[in-house]
Design a protein around this nucleic acid. Structure first.
Length: 479
RNA sequence: GCUCCCUUCGUCUAGCGGUCUAGGACGCCGCCCUCUCACGGCGGAAACAGGGGUUCGAGUCCCCUAGGGAGCGCCA
């Protein structure tokens, strides 16, 4: 029922851990390519390794994709569940004489690799059972099934990213299709599944590049069309080495916990290895329109937190206040200290938060910072002061506040314009610079040395709370 | 060891033989704005890995060297 020219991609993670950052980018590329061209993206869980696959990992991967805003068509396919079909394909190959039973023991195999290495040849199977008569099979040994791969000539793949890549068939060996316990190998399963699922474009990490050559042999033996390939470079850590846990190879949920926005994450990831002229910030719509496999670079990119941070800040500032507020509240359960903050969001504090968002979002590059900078809104009197605030509220600072308090108490209206007028006038008449008044005020109102504009803070906290907090620092009780 | 891939500012990249005295972004430095911190604005330092070719002309094409990466399993 599928359109013959329709593009079908797939993301095929193995559920042995979380969705790491490289996998997330691979998924994004698959998604962009398919969705940008009216095609479909499928999801397949490569769970043939039963010992290492877990339900939790599957859940984490689906959750990570959902958070990133990447969806797929149909139900996720379990590779393990298709083992019968994989065996069936091998029977077909056996019947056609394109595969054979191999009785070589693990010891023999190890020895083969050893000698090959010594002689400066690539370590590979020597094909000792390739043309041997079945009657020579040892008793009581279950054979593995190997592909009878071409031994001469060369195998060429035309890759959308890597270009034309050529291997001498002599350097490739007869890979195992079915293990001696009857279970299909990854190499076989991938080919059969991609074919059956109608995948037209295989977009994956370039650690699979050589696999493409060997898988091509399987496609050819089965008489199937070879899909289009796009092997994208891996992401490296800041030091240029393979991305490891101490770099950025965290699960995407870790980025959520650090307070990054999914949209910013997508934008950062898509620019790693791909670009469209000088465009740095682009909407998802633009990505879908511009993204192309042929424009992906061939060299590995390093993961740079500073740039992610900057992009995330841009997204936060660009986002409408209401949207950011929703996103922020939704992420609270995942942020450190978020749940405690959430508990304090009664009607009053929620209103304060909503009112403070415009001033807050200019000053935070991620939601974790936004949370930290929002803390003063829900803190209870009397506020505890951080070091900087304590220094500002020295004797002189307290005297200043004591002088200002009555004027604020008598404010005709509690809006930014009126309050600014009062404070500026007070500063002028008492021969102080505005900063000499604003800073003590800030310290008293927020308990910190930095905050959004002080007049906005006064308005957001409201008259009673503001006067109360100032009073707490002058020793003059107001309620 | 063998096979394959890669190499432009610290980082992500633009560049698809002449428009490159190499452009943008992050980061960094300086100045401005300013009630703090940010935002914003302006300016600055900063790269074609090295060597050979090809060509009238090379960051762009070819080769070599060096450096980096990936793969070489009855793992995926």
């Amino acid at each position: 029922m599928s359109n013959p020219t329709e593009i079908v991609t797939r993301f095929a993670p193995s559920p042995t851990g979380f969705l790491h950052i490289g996998g997330a980018r691979t998924a994004l590329f698959n998604w962009l390519y398919a969705r940008g061209r009216g095609g479909r993206m499928l999801l397949r869980i490569e769970d043939t390794d039963r010992a290492r696959s877990t339900e939790e990992a599957i859940a984490a991967i689906l959750d990570g994709l959902a958070w990133l805003g990447l969806d797929w068509d149909g139900d996720p396919v379990s590779q393990h569940a298709r083992a019968e079909r994989h065996r069936e394909a091998v029977e077909q190959l056996l019947a056609a004489g394109k595969a054979y039973r191999c009785y070589a023991s693990p010891e023999e195999l190890a020895e083969m690799r050893e000698t090959a290495r010594k002689e400066g040849r690539p370590p590979r199977y020597d094909g000792r059972w390739r043309d041997r008569d079945p009657s020579e099979a040892p008793q009581g040994v279950n054979p593995a099934i190997r592909l009878k791969a071409p031994q001469e000539g060369e195998t060429v793949i035309e890759d959308h990213v890597q270009g034309r890549v050529t291997w001498q068939n002599a350097d490739l060996d007869d890979l195992i299709l079915l293990r001696s316990d009857g279970n299909p190998t990854y190499m076989l399963a991938v080919v059969v599944d991609d074919h059956d699922m109608g995948v037209t474009h295989v977009v994956r990490g370039d650690d699979h590049l050589t696999n493409a050559a060997r898988q091509t042999h399987i496609y050819q033996a089965l008489g199937w069309n070879v899909p289009e390939w796009a092997h994208i470079p891996l992401i490296h850590g800041p030091d240029g080495a393979k991305l490891s846990k101490r770099h950025g190879a965290l699960g995407v949920e870790a980025y959520r916990a650090m307070g990054y926005l999914p949209a910013a994450m997508r934008n950062y990831l898509v620019r790693l290895g791909w670009s469209h002229g000088d465009h740095e910030v682009m909407s998802t719509e633009q990505m879908l329109e511009w993204f192309d496999l042929d424009a992906i670079g061939r060299s590995a990119a390093r993961f740079d937190f500073a740039k992610l941070e900057n992009l995330n800040g841009i997204y936060m500032r660009q986002m409408p206040d209401d949207d950011l507020l929703v996103e922020f509240r939704r992420s609270l359960p995942y942020l450190e200290g978020g749940p405690a903050f959430e508990e304090k969001l009664d009607a009053t504090n929620s209103a304060r938060l909503a009112g403070a968002i415009p001033g807050l979002k200019e000053r935070a590059k991620n939601l974790t910072e936004l949370l930290a900078n929002s803390q003063f809104l829900v803190d209870e009197r009397p506020l505890s002061l951080d070091d900087k605030a304590a220094r500002i509220l020295d004797d002189a600072g307290r005297v200043t506040l004591a002088g200002l308090l009555p004027l604020l108490t008598g404010a005709a209206a509690w809006d930014a314009e009126t309050l600014e007028g009062i404070v500026r006038e007070f500063a002028e008449e008492t021969g102080r610079k505005l900063g000499q008044v604003a800073q003590p005020l800030r310290a008293a109102l927020t308990g910190r040395g930095t905050s959004p504009g002080i007049f906005d803070v006064l308005v957001v906290l409201g008259r009673d709370e503001s006067l109360g907090r100032i009073g707490d620092q002058t020793g003059v009780p107001t309620d």
